[in-house]
């Protein structure tokens, strides 16, 4: 009798193990399929772009302005426009977003008002980008009279990614153990000293990730900058920020008209002449490369900063 029972138990356990393993295999297969779907789609698109666009990636393609002749057309105005706009976006969104995040997490009292702000910030992250474009058109372009300039576009995209930066900052600050802060206070540090010497450096990797996710979103945005009135054809660059004559630094480039990579790509894909499709692919490759470089920079910085954290 006892022997019989133990074999029955054993077969029950075996069955249990078998079904567990089966489920695991099933899960792995589903997960792999999901991953393959995403990766293969991207690969197919990327390889297609590479085949169409790579012959166009010459030095002239980067140093020529747009042209009605496909073989002469380049992306100079577009990449400089995207670069300068992203510079303004980062310069505005990063300090504002990080400081808001720190304040909300480290200083703000927990009450209904801050709860309301938190809900609103999370909601703002989901607002369609064209709404930011309309807001910017009314506020920056018409009310403030800033025109369709690099500064307007930079501010618009900064507003767009601000919620992402704030949320990322708060998440990474929250991940720092309370004991670190308590230790700092125990040694007589003020709140700001605690933030400056401990909280901020330790949360920097997470903040950077958030900033890069935001900027990667902003770099591909077309709708808001079209709404504020970015031009399609432009054959000059914003003024140089460095001058030979005093005061040596010029901010004229902020008020210059511009175009951006997504606008250039869209314009080329909608042309009747098929030769422009290759240009569009090449420009899209450059845009992907710009995003990859930005992400690579973030990963590198994160790695370097993490090395310095010793708890």
């Amino acid at each position: 009798m006892p022997k019989q029972r133990s074999t029955r138990d054993l077969s029950l356990i075996r069955r249990l193990i078998r079904s567990g393993k089966r489920n695991e295999t099933l899960f792995i297969a589903t997960g792999l399929a999901a991953l393959a779907l995403a990766v293969l789609t991207f690969l197919a698109l990327f390889i297609d772009m590479l085949i169409d666009g790579s012959p166009r990636l010459t030095a002239e393609f980067f140093s020529n302005y747009a042209s009605r002749k496909a073989e002469k057309a380049g992306i100079l105005a577009a990449w400089v426009g995207t670069f300068t706009v992203m510079l303004v976006t980062a310069a505005v969104a990063v300090p504002l977003g990080v400081m808001s995040g720190i304040y909300l997490e480290e200083y703000a009292p927990k009450n209904r008002f801050t709860d309301l702000i938190e809900i609103n910030i999370n909601n703002l992250a989901g607002v369609p980008s064209i709404v930011y474009g309309l807001l910017a058109l009314g506020m920056f372009v018409h009310t403030f009279g800033m025109g369709a300039s690099v500064a307007t576009a930079g501010l618009t995209l900064a507003l767009l990614i601000l919620p992402v930066v704030i949320v990322a900052t708060r998440e990474s600050i929250r991940a720092i153990p309370g004991s670190i802060r308590e230790a700092a206070y125990a040694l007589g540090a003020t709140r700001w000293q605690t933030v400056q010497h401990h909280v901020l450096p330790y949360s920097m990797p997470g903040i950077l990730t958030g900033v890069i996710i935001g900027l990667s979103r902003a770099i591909g945005e077309t709708a808001p900058i079209v709404i504020i009135g970015a031009v399609t054809f432009i054959a000059f660059l914003p003024g140089s920020p460095v001058q030979s004559a005093p005061p040596f630094i010029s901010f004229d480039w902020l008020s210059a008209p511009f175009t951006a990579m997504p606008i250039q790509i869209f314009n080329w894909t909608s042309r009747p002449d098929a030769a422009f499709q290759a240009n569009a692919s090449a420009a899209a490759l450059v845009l992907v490369a710009m995003t990859v470089v930005m992400n690579g920079l973030a990963i590198w910085l994160r790695y370097r900063l993490r090395r310095n954290i010793k708890w």
Partner: peptide, 17 residues
């Protein structure tokens, strides 16, 4: 940034904006 801006401006050979 300064470098690329300079390059661009040289190319157009136009007076300041």
């Amino acid at each position: 940034l300064a470098g690329c801006q300079q390059d661009g401006t040289d190319q157009t050979a136009a007076p300041p904006a």
